[in-house]
Amino acid sequence: MKKFLTKIVLYTFFILLIGNGIAWLSLYFIGKSNLYKPQFVKNGVKEKHFDYVVLGSSTGLTTLDTKLIDEKLKTKGLNISMDDSALSSHYLMLQFFYQQQKTTDYLVLAVTPWDLANENPVLNNNDYRFLSERNTTAVREYYQTIPYEGFPVLKYATYFPLVGVSYYNTELFYPSLFTILKPEKRNRFDEKGNYSYPNLGAPIQAEATTTAMQFNNPYFKKIKDFCQKQGITLVLYQSPLYKNSVKSNAKDYFVNHSDFISVDSLFYDNLHVNSLGRTQCSEDFAVQFNTIRNANRK
């Protein structure tokens, strides 16, 4: 019995040691790459100051093309949106962006009514992408405080990388092997952080509805406070939704594209536009954003 328990304990210790070593290396190589948005912001973006940044989830990522907007307005923009994320992750991204000594005049926050209405935000699906940056204050605090559904993997991964790297092995371990050879590789976004859906897909037919924005999400207030503190002008952006018109009584600048597109062929699905839809949205956004900038200057 004693022999069995001793062997089990020693072997477990050995596995934990080796496993954590490999996991640490894995995160080290990801941290040196441009693979996901946090690493891209840290390593791939050389500029320090931007006229505006677009921050949001997949709607922010795939609707506003900063290259096109910059071409129209002669500005310097960056898209730091991350798919499958929410306001809590956006707040983390914004903090992280500033901790990298980067600044912006405008924050274009791509929101969704259901995320804004969410009173109890929890960990988002792609928050693991910050794991290689676990030693920064913002990330560490976020992993410690955000509520988890189930086992708090990222909370413990801050101290034991093995926990996080094995749980998210497809997303962290395998990509880390590629980053050893190709650290400059980005995961589905261009050098300005944009991505677009192909001109395929179609929305599923739905009844026309109207949704009122409700600002219940505590992270929205955190973002607002952060902007105020850093002197950033906040611009809310609502991307096109298929047959869903969003109404808002927001006191911030608000570009509402919820019913901007009515042609089915410009949608990729009910929540996202395709590449053609993106061009239309970006061009119109450039016009409206210019108006906001002019008004703000006065």
Binding site: I18, S166, Y167
Partner: peptide, 15 residues
């Protein structure tokens, strides 16, 4: 056994 555990950690589906 070590290889099997490594396979569990590196190839297992947890998320």
């Amino acid at each position: 056994v070590t290889l099997a555990i490594m396979a569990l950690l590196a190839l297992g589906v947890y998320s």
